[in-house]
Design a protein around this nucleic acid. Structure first.
Lengths: 147, 147
DNA sequence: TATACAAGTTGAAGTAACTTGAGGTTCAAG
DNA sequence: CTTGAACCTCAAGTTACTTCAACTTGTATA
């Protein structure tokens, strides 16, 4: 019988087999044909669909958003502008996240730096870092900028 | 009776009251004194502790990592170098995440751009974007770089 | 003082997006 | 024919909370 087994599909799309079954369970992937022994068999269209899903997920779209996107793929009479708008909204969120993460990286890098500079001596009650984190005094200057 | 009620602590630390109870439940915050009517009362040390926790969480440390960090705060005889190393490891993870997110931003921005350029006409079966996402052909050139 | 309503209490269940585990069947190779 | 990998289903576990229901307590006002 033709078609990929679930393991092959998993490998080809970089998806865990359990995840594939999970997607089937929540209706994100259609129920595939079964071989005599009840094992799932997938075709090339399934490869495409799953690739699409994984790519969207990698892009940070939620399952529900992927569902929407998927239906756009199915129903081409609707505008791909809907997809554009979804992506656009997503882009805004990503840029916000990016800003946050950059600030975070800076803060933690400073944390490590200060630690290296001031706590090199090893164990002891003198660590300024942990005090900073508990916020007894303003943090920004000596150690970590508040998020 | 002195001390903050849970709502006040929540407001001061920017934490949901339910989350405070949750932290208490998992042993991240100590059980506070109770007022006559069984309501929790918190002191300044609790403000510090919770601020510490929230800040670590904002920094992306997991609850378990915060637990470790917390114990370092309690027990100053141990080295703050442990905290440094935890932070260092975390920094590496953050930088990886940052790289991913940057690539993602670029991809999605391109997605939107191409959409604007090629799909302006509105609805129709000609949308190249959705085809790209399902990976029938390599994506990088016309639309989105693979993650 | 009565009343209303905001804020507190508990325990349980819900959330996202899977992952892991138990216990059993089927396939493919030697 | 046997062995072991890959498959099957269903249930429960994961993270870090949030939400809900049903109830009690605290506080401000008429």
């Amino acid at each position: 019988m033709a078609g990929h087994k679930i393991g092959a599909l998993a490998k080809r799309t970089g998806t865990n087999a359990a995840t594939i079954r999970y997607y089937e369970g929540i209706g994100l992937l259609p129920r595939p044909d079964r071989q005599d022994g009840n094992q799932r068999r997938y075709g090339e269209d399934d490869v495409g669909r799953l690739t699409f899903i994984r790519r969207c997920r990698d892009f940070g779209f939620s399952i529900e958003q992927v569902r929407t996107l998927s239906s756009l793929v199915q129903d081409r009479s609707r505008s791909c502008l809907e997809a554009r708008d979804l992506a656009q909204g997503h882009l805004v969120a990503i840029r916000a996240k990016l800003r946050e993460l950059k600030a975070l990286e800076k803060s933690i890098a400073q944390f490590v730096e200060v630690c290296d500079a001031e706590c090199v001596g090893g164990p002891g009650p003198d660590c300024v870092i942990l005090d900073d984190l508990s916020g007894a005094r303003p943090i920004a200057t000596s150690c970590c900028a508040a998020a």
